[in-house]
Design a protein around this nucleic acid. Structure first.
Lengths: 208, 208
DNA sequence: TGCACTATTAACCATTTGGTTAAACAATGC
DNA sequence: GCATTGTTTAACCAAATGGTTAATAGTGCA
C-alpha cells in the first residue's frame, strides 16, 4: 500500500508551479504578473517558487522558452515536409488554428514580450532548438509559379498572409468580437470555420 | 516682443506628458510602465504628472481612449462609404497599413491591454464615440455575392482576413522577421509592398 | 529509532513605486 | 511693488513586491 498522499492528478509542486505560471504570465505578461499570485494559483507558498525557480526572471524564462518552442516548433515539421503545396497549406492552417485554439493567450503573450525587449531579438529560439526553416516551402512556391500553377507572389508575402489569418483573430479577439458585434458562440463558430475557410481563401487567390 | 520662453516646438507640459506617456505605455503596457520613466521621458518632475493627471490609471485611460479611437475610428469612414466593394477594399488596406506604419506599437498595445482585462470588454469605445458600423460593408458583400460578382463568403470572414493581413505583420514583426530571416530594410519593403499586394490577394480570392 | 535530506511555510527584509506635501518659482493683475 | 494664482520641484510616505531566512514537517534509509 502506498502512503504517498499525492497520487493521480496531484502533480508535483514543480509542475503545479509551471502550470500556474503559464496561466498567469500568458494573461498578464511578465510585468503584470505577481509572484504571490502565481503561488496562490499553484496552491503553494510564495517562498516555494523561489525554492524551485530562483527568481521571477528565471521562472519567466522557462515559460517563455516553452512558449516560443510551441509557437515556432510546429512551423518546420509542416512547412518542411514533402506534401504538395496546396495540401501543405491546408495542413498548416488546420494545425496552427487547432493549436492556437487550445492556447489562445500564447501568441499575444509572446508578441507583447518580444516588443517589450526590442534589444534581444527572438534569437536563441527555444534555447537553441532548430530555427524554423522555410526554404522548402519557399522553393515549392517558386516552383509552382514557374510551372504556372499559381500566380506570381513573393513567398514571404504568402507566408505572412497565412500566419496573419491564422493567428490574428485570436490575438485580436476582443476587439474583433466587439466590432463584429457577435456572441461568444458565434465567434467560436467563425474561428472553427476558418480551418476550412482560410485554405480555400488562400488557394483561390493564388491558383491559376 | 514675446518673452515666452516656450515657443515653437516647446509644447506645454501637458502635451509633453501625453506624448511621453504614449511612447512608454504603448511599448511597455500599463503594468510595465513606470511613472518616473514617463516623467523623465517628458523631461519633467514626477510630481507634475500627478498635477496634470491625478493617477497612473487616469493617465493610462487618456492614452488608451486615444488609441482605441485611432484604431477603430478609421473603420467607419472607409467601410461605411459609398465606394464600390473592390475600391473600398483597396482604400481600407492602404489607409490601415499607412496608419499602422506610423504607429507600429499601437495595435499590440491595445490588444495586450484588452486581453489583460477580460471583464470590461471593448465597450465605451473611445468614450462613447460612434461604434464602428460594418453593416454597409456587409450589405455590399452580400449584394456582390447575389450578383455573382464574387464567390460566397461570410462577410465576417472577409473582414477578419482583411484586418488580419493588415495588422498582424506589424504586431508580430519581430517574430516574423526572425522566421523569414530578413533585414530591417527588406522587411520594411515587404510591409510597404503589402499596400498593393493585399488588395490583389483578396480580390483574386473572391472575384468570380 | 534516529539521522540526513528534501520540501514547505510564516515571518521578515530591502527596494521599488505610485502618490503626497510643502515650499520655491513664475506669471499676471492691480 | 505686491498680492494672487498657477506651475514645478525636492523630499517624503505608505503600500506593494521580489526575495531571503530560519524554523518545521515530511521521507527514506541505516
Amino acid at each position: 500500500m502506498q502512503l504517498n498522499k499525492k497520487v493521480k492528478v496531484e502533480q508535483g509542486a514543480e509542475q503545479k508551479i509551471i502550470a500556474a505560471a503559464r496561466r498567469i504570465f500568458q494573461r498578464k505578461g511578465m510585468a503584470g504578473a505577481r509572484m504571490e499570485e502565481i503561488a496562490a494559483e499553484a496552491g503553494i507558498n510564495k517562498a516555494l517558487l523561489h525554492y524551485y525557480f530562483r527568481s521571477k526572471e528565471k521562472l519567466f524564462q522557462v515559460i517563455m522558452m516553452e512558449a516560443k518552442g510551441q509557437m515556432l516548433g510546429r512551423l518546420h515539421p509542416i512547412l518542411g515536409s514533402d506534401a504538395p503545396l496546396f495540401e501543405k497549406i491546408e495542413l498548416f492552417v488546420e494545425s496552427y488554428i487547432s493549436f492556437v485554439t487550445e492556447n489562445p493567450f500564447l501568441p499575444g503573450f509572446i508578441l507583447h514580450e518580444i516588443n517589450r525587449h526590442p534589444e534581444k531579438l527572438v534569437n536563441e529560439i527555444s534555447s537553441g532548438a532548430k530555427r524554423p526553416n522555410l526554404s522548402k516551402f519557399f522553393q515549392q512556391v517558386e516552383t509552382e509559379i514557374k510551372k504556372k500553377n499559381i500566380i506570381a507572389i513573393q513567398p514571404e508575402q504568402l507566408f505572412m498572409n497565412m500566419l496573419s489569418m491564422c493567428v490574428f483573430p485570436f490575438v485580436g479577439r476582443p476587439m474583433l468580437q466587439t466590432v463584429l458585434n457577435v456572441t461568444d458562440k458565434k465567434f467560436n463558430q467563425l474561428l472553427a470555420d476558418r480551418k476550412k475557410e482560410i485554405p480555400v481563401f488562400i488557394i483561390n487567390s493564388i491558383k491559376r
